[in-house]
């Protein structure tokens, strides 16, 4: 990703004249695209999530590369942010089995025995198995 310039001055000049307006227009177009995509795909959850996450990812990448100058920095920025991203992913993935799995059967009696983390004894305060 990182682009190398021959001199510091050249690189400063590249930063000062980066295509910010173009990036801005692309970001706005993507936002409009997201808006209508969400409206069209409202029924289909898988397509909705996948499509929107891709669009949001492109937007985030554009902001980081151009506005945050990651494109012009050395690789050290990746050395900081990639571990953070990996740890973030580990945390969320490790939370999934315990918290992120919906109880399959909403029936209270059965839930108690099949999924230890399912809400118990609803609507009856203090009832615990």
């Amino acid at each position: 990703m990182a682009v190398t310039y021959a001199t510091h001055e050249e690189q400063e000049a590249a930063e000062a004249h980066a295509p910010y307006i173009k990036v801005w227009v692309v970001l706005l177009v993507l936002t409009v695209l997201e808006y209508f995509y969400a409206k069209l795909m409202a029924g289909n959850m898988t397509a909705l999530v996948l499509g929107l996450l891709i669009l949001a990812g492109i937007k985030a990448a554009l902001v980081a590369l151009y506005f945050m100058h990651v494109k012009f920095e050395g690789r050290w920025v990746y050395a900081i942010m990639v571990p953070a991203g990996i740890l973030a992913a580990i945390l969320v993935l490790a939370l999934m089995p315990d918290i992120g799995t919906a109880p399959e059967n909403p029936d209270v009696e059965e839930t108690v025995w099949s999924a230890p983390n399912a809400p118990l004894g609803r609507d009856e305060p203090g009832v615990r198995v």
């Binding site: 900081i80 740890l87 945390l91 939370l95 999934m96 918290i99 919906a102 109880p103 909403p106």
Partner: peptide, 25 residues
């Protein structure tokens, strides 16, 4: 900013897993 990533991971990750684990009713 890396610490901020982890902070927002705490919040957004919590949202994602709580939503994924929310019972269907």
């Amino acid at each position: 900013l890396a610490t901020e990533v982890m902070f927002f991971t705490g919040l957004i990750g919590t949202y994602i897993v709580l939503r994924a684990g929310s019972p269907p009713t």
